[in-house]
Amino acid sequence: MTTMSTPANGASELLDLAAGVFLLAAVAILWLRDVAAQTRLLAVQGSALAAMAVVLGAEQAHPELYAVAAGVGLLRAVVLPALLRRAVNARAADRETRPLLNVGASLLTAAALVLLAYAVAQPLVRLEATAAARALSVGLSVVLIGLLVLVTRRNALAQVVGFLLLDNGITAIAFLAAAGVPLLVELGVSFDLLLVVLVLRVLTTRMRAVFGSADLDDLRELRD
């Protein structure tokens, strides 16, 4: 495409907006300690992800993406955050997390991770110089921030939030780099994700019953 028409420009601006919201939600999750607030941000991020899919579907005249966007939006903006929120509300004591890194250090690390993601994404961006490909580093940043949340939070539910961040990042990369994976694969992946979150929820409930909390610092019996 040598001549960019106005609607395409509009689309790429919308895409950048959605990607910006997507990244900001991840940073805000890192910033906040209240798991209930984190689940609300996760819903916002899920909506941004669905919006990205819609914009890409419109831009690339790829109607299958609308259906995928609807499914992704339902799963990641509604079902998964709702599952988590119910688990959070079940016990008020688990709402606050005590991260291993304080807020300042977390945000600085996140900034470094965004830069790293930008550098690492370059081969993929060079592959196809579209607006979507340029936004790829956002997806990779969210993957890395999700890993950071997983490593630094010692609360079971906060770790689930980190895992979902990681997975949202991966889905965003799938949309931005390749306009989504084949539909059957996407369905299978989403179903697996839903089941993993359910498994983790059941385990959290059992841990509360046995340990009296969902604090992973209590998990210290198995070591060498």
Binding site: R206, L219, E221
Partner: peptide, 11 residues
């Protein structure tokens, strides 16, 4: 211990 192992394994 079993719950701890299951959590670590899944995550």
């Amino acid at each position: 211990q079993a719950l701890e192992a299951a959590w670590k394994y899944t995550v």
